[in-house]
Design a protein around this nucleic acid. Structure first.
Length: 462
RNA sequence: GGCUGAAUGGCAGAGUGGCUAUGCACCGGAUUGCAAAUCCGUUUACCUCGGUUCGACUCCGGGUUCAGCCUCCA
C-alpha cells in the first residue's frame, strides 16, 4: 500500500487513485532558456522514480510534464542572443532531452509546450472572468482576484492577511488587490503575442499549467508535483485558478521535492552557484549522479559536493562489481523476499535510502556465494537488476559500466590497457613481480584499477 | 516579521519507545606474490534543557542553530 506525503495536508496519506488502476500525474517542468542544473535534475529524477514505482505497482500512469517555452526570461535571453524565441527554446529543449537521456530519465507520457496550448488558456481565463474570479484591467492585462477564492492560501499554509502584511512587491496600479496575479499580459513591442478577447498578449505563467493539466488529465487528477519553491505562489495559484474555474478539487495529492544546495545554500540561477548537468557529466556518469540524488529522501535538502559524488561512484561500483560475472537468466526468477522489502520501503513515501539497503544486501549475498554463476547467484543477480531498474539504475553490462566511467584522464584507451595487462600477465607468469608492479603502478596513475581474481585480471576506472 | 521543515557516529544518510540500517572511511582477521575486489569481525551516534515513562535518539514542551518560502526559481 503506497503512502505519500501530501503537501496539502502536511501528512503521509494512503494513496488512492480516483480511478482504480490508473494514475494521472502532472509535474511542472522547466522554463527552457538555459542548460539544466543539478536542481532540475533532482526534479526529473525524483518524479521519474515515482513514475517507475507506480508502474511497478501495476498502475497505468499518465505522466504529464510541461515545458514552459514563453516567459520574460526566455524573451530577454533571446533578445540578448539576437535570436528568435523559437530558436532559443528549441536548442534548450534538445539539451534537456540529452541530459535526461544521460540520467536515464524516462520520457513522460506527454510533454506539452505552453505555446501550443494558448487556446486552452484563453478559454480558461474567459471561464474565470465569467464566474467572477478574474477581471480585465484597462491596459489589457487580466488578473485573478485572489480574495474571491475562499481556499486561497490552503496549499502553502498562509493567510491572505499575513501575505499582505509581508508584501514586498511593488504595487501594480492595474490590480484591484496587490495579491492578485496576472493571467494574461498585454503585448509589449517586439515580444511574442497571441490574439485574445482582451487584446494581443501572452499568458501568465500559472495559467499555463492549469490549462495543460486540464487538457491532458481532466479537471481532477491524482498527483501534482514539482520543486519545493513552486508550492507558493505557482501551485497555490494554479490550484486557485483550476478549482475556481471548475468548481471542484484540482489535484488530490501534491508532492514537492527538496532542494539541492551548495555550501548549505540553495542552488539557483539567481545565486549563480549552480552546476549544470552536462558539466558534472564530464567527470561522473549519469548513473552516479542519479545515485547521489536518490540516495537521500526526495523531500530533504541535498548538499552538492564532489565528495558526495565520489561516494556515489564507490557505491555504484560496489553494486556493479557484485553483478560482474553473474548470469542473466530470467527463467530462474527473482527472490520475492527482497522484492517485498524493497517495495515496502518505496511504498513509504518513496524511501529510496532504505530501498538501497536492500540492493546492498543483495550485493552482499551474491558476493558471499562461492560461485557467481550458480542458480542461487543468478536469482540474486536477477533480483538486483530488477530492483535497480525500478530506480533507473544497474541496467548496463557491469564490465562496460565499470570501464566506461568518465575520467579526467583519458590518456590511455582500452586497447592499450589490454596490451599492458597481457604484458603484466606474462611477467607474473615468470614471477617477475617488479615488472608486474611497474605496469600496475603505471595504470593506477592513469586512473585504472586492476583486480586479479579467479586467475583473471580485470580492470576498471576509479 | 509571518509560515514551513531540519538537527543522528569521521562523512553521507535511513529508522525506531527497550533489539545490526545501509554506503564510504577507519581498525583487526581471512584471501592475495604484493595489491585490488570480496568475505568475517570490531569501533564511532542520535543539538540543548525540562517533562511523560519501568525505560526516549524516538512522545510532549521550552531553547539554540540551520535551511526554504513569503519576488522569477526544480
Amino acid at each position: 500500500m503506497l503512502h505519500i506525503y501530501n503537501s496539502l495536508t502536511r501528512k503521509k496519506e494512503l494513496f488512492t487513485p480516483q480511478e482504480a488502476g490508473k494514475v494521472g500525474m502532472y509535474v511542472c517542468g522547466i522554463t527552457v532558456y538555459d542548460y539544466c542544473h543539478i536542481g532540475h535534475a533532482r526534479m526529473f529524477i525524483v518524479f521519474d522514480v515515482l513514475y517507475r514505482h507506480l508502474q511497478a505497482l501495476g498502475f497505468n500512469v499518465n505522466y504529464v510534464r510541461n515545458i514552459t517555452d514563453v516567459d520574460d526570461k526566455i524573451i530577454a535571453r533571446a533578445a540578448e542572443n539576437n535570436e528568435s524565441v523559437e530558436q532559443l527554446t528549441g536548442r534548450y529543449i534538445e539539451a534537456m532531452l540529452e541530459d535526461e537521456t544521460a540520467l536515464n530519465v524516462l520520457r513522460p507520457s506527454h510533454e506539452p509546450r505552453a505555446t501550443a496550448a494558448i487556446d486552452d488558456m484563453i478559454q480558461l481565463i474567459q471561464q474565470l472572468i465569467d464566474k467572477g474570479f478574474a477581471y480585465a484591467a484597462d491596459n489589457g492585462d487580466v488578473f485573478y482576484s485572489v480574495s474571491k477564492f475562499e481556499h486561497y492560501g490552503e496549499l502553502s499554509g498562509r493567510k491572505l492577511a499575513d501575505m499582505r502584511a509581508g508584501e514586498r512587491v511593488a504595487v501594480d496600479t492595474n490590480k484591484e488587490d496587490p495579491m492578485d496575479f496576472v493571467l494574461w499580459k498585454s503585448v509589449k513591442p517586439g515580444e511574442p503575442s497571441w490574439p485574445s478577447p482582451w487584446g494581443d498578449g501572452r499568458p501568465g505563467w500559472h495559467i499555463e499549467c492549469s490549462a495543460m493539466a486540464k487538457s491532458h488529465l481532466g479537471e481532477q487528477f491524482d498527483i501534482h508535483g514539482g520543486g519545493m519553491d513552486l508550492q507558493f505562489p505557482h501551485h497555490e495559484n494554479e490550484k486557485a485558478q483550476s478549482e475556481a474555474a471548475h468548481g471542484h478539487t484540482f489535484a488530490h495529492y501534491w508532492m514537492h521535492n527538496g532542494f539541492v544546495r551548495v555550501d548549505e545554500e540553495k542552488m539557483s540561477k539567481s545565486l549563480g552557484n549552480f552546476f549544470t548537468v552536462r558539466e558534472v557529466l564530464k567527470l561522473y556518469s549519469g548513473e552516479e549522479l542519479r545515485f547521489f540524488i536518490i540516495n537521500s529522501h526526495y523531500r530533504s535538502a541535498l548538499n552538492y559536493s564532489t565528495a558526495q559524488l565520489d561516494a556515489a561512484r564507490a557505491a555504484v561500483q560496489r553494486l556493479y562489481t557484485a553483478l560482474r560475472g553473474t548470469r542473466d537468466d530470467a527463467a530462474l526468477g527473482i527472490d520475492q523476499t527482497f522484492i517485498d522489502r524493497f517495495e515496502q520501503s518505496m511504498n513509504d513515501d518513496l524511501n529510496t535510502a532504505e530501498a538501497f539497503a536492500v540492493l546492498f544486501d543483495l550485493a552482499t549475498e551474491i558476493n558471499r556465494l562461492d560461485d557467481v554463476e550458480s542458480d542461487q547467484a543468478t536469482v540474486f543477480a536477477n533480483t538486483l537488476r530488477a530492483l535497480g531498474g525500478r530506480l533507473g539504475l544497474l541496467q548496463d553490462d557491469p564490465e562496460t559500466a565499470l570501464q566506461g566511467l568518465p575520467s579526467d584522464d583519458d590518456s590511455i584507451d582500452a586497447a592499450a590497457i589490454d596490451a599492458l595487462i597481457a604484458e603484466r600477465d606474462a611477467a607474473r607468469a615468470e614471477k617477475n613481480w617488479q615488472r608486474s608492479d611497474e605496469i600496475r603502478d603505471q595504470l593506477t596513475q592513469a586512473g585504472i584499477t586492476l583486480e586479479d581474481s579467479g586467475g583473471k585480471t580485470t580492470w576498471r576506472r576509479g
